[in-house]
């Protein structure tokens, strides 16, 4: 039903808009392995879209297609109403798509503050000369962006570790810093690859709250991969279910929970 209407209001009062990103018949192969088989789905503006599935289902590969690391052999990627030509990851980032990784990918040699500041690089345009002399644009830009970054640091409650080198942080905080860096870009679409993996219950609750707050306060569209079904059911508006590279379900959390193919995949019914 919801796929055909232009926009709707969720039970908790958020407005979900039209289609922001659409994947059409994506097929991705690595040599003989087909990681994604002819999958189509869309992501609407303002929604939290979950991608779930057993290990090796192709979820991360799908995010990598969206962010330009992998180029599918078949299919089309549509973003904001236009078909997207094959792009490099940095070009995708410049279009307003930010992400975090399943295995944290922070800049270990830099402080938390510098890591989050790198998230604003797509907004920084001072030329080499201005930077060399630290005049004009360069200085103003640094202060402007620092203000934005401090807001995000406050928002994610990492003020106290601002000047700590990232390498020294525990795992859970690193995940949070990585989210901060992605948020700093003020993305239109935020991709989160297992943001809660390896966290304890308390950390998961914090992270869930942040994901919801980001979506609510900044109106950021979020696509996330998550294994914890409880979290997925709580957070997401709609869920795509993948198994062995194929899409086996797509709909609201309730739809998906009652879908026989999904239940089979999770209970490990043999594929024949």
């Amino acid at each position: 039903m919801k796929d055909t209407i232009e926009s709707y209001v969720t039970p908790d009062g958020r407005t979900i808009g039209g289609v922001l990103m659409e994947m059409k018949n994506i097929t991705l192969r690595f040599g003989g392995v087909t990681a994604i088989k002819d999958i189509s789905f869309d992501i609407r503006e303002g929604e939290i879209r979950a991608i779930i599935g057993p290990n090796g289902a192709g979820k991360s590969s799908m995010l990598n297609v969206i962010s330009g690391f992998y180029h599918p052999q078949e299919g089309e990627v549509w973003f904001r109403g236009d078909r997207r030509p094959p792009m490099k990851p940095y070009q995708v980032a410049q279009q307003g798509i930010a992400r975090t990784f399943q295995n944290i990918a922070l800049f270990e040699g830099m402080t938390v503050l510098d890591n989050v500041m790198t998230g604003r690089l797509t907004h920084m345009r001072a030329g080499m000369l201005a930077q060399a002399l630290w005049k004009g644009r360069a200085e103003a830009e640094e202060t402007e962006n620092r203000e934005k970054v401090e807001k995000i640091i406050d928002f994610l409650e990492i003020q106290s570790i601002r000047k700590t080198p990232v390498g020294r942080l525990p795992y859970g905080l690193k995940k949070r810093v990585e989210l901060a860096r992605a948020l700093a870009a003020e993305p239109m679409l935020l991709l989160l690859d297992e943001p809660m993996a390896g966290m304890n219950v308390e950390e998961k609750e914090d992270m869930s709250r942040f994901v919801l707050d980001v979506n609510d306060e900044f109106g950021t569209t979020i696509a996330l991969i998550e294994h914890d079904m409880g979290v997925v059911m709580d957070l997401s508006d709609r869920v795509v279910v993948m198994d062995y590279g194929k899409k086996i379900g797509d709909g609201t959390p309730d739809d998906v929970r009652n879908n026989q193919a999904v239940i089979d995949a999770y209970l490990g019914v043999s594929h024949d």
């Binding site: 490099k88 940095y90 980032a93 800049f107 998230g119 690089l121 797509t122 870009a185």
Partner: peptide, 8 residues
């Protein structure tokens, strides 16, 4: 890789 993903 992370540098590319943030737009560098």
């Amino acid at each position: 890789i992370a540098a590319e993903i943030i737009g560098v």
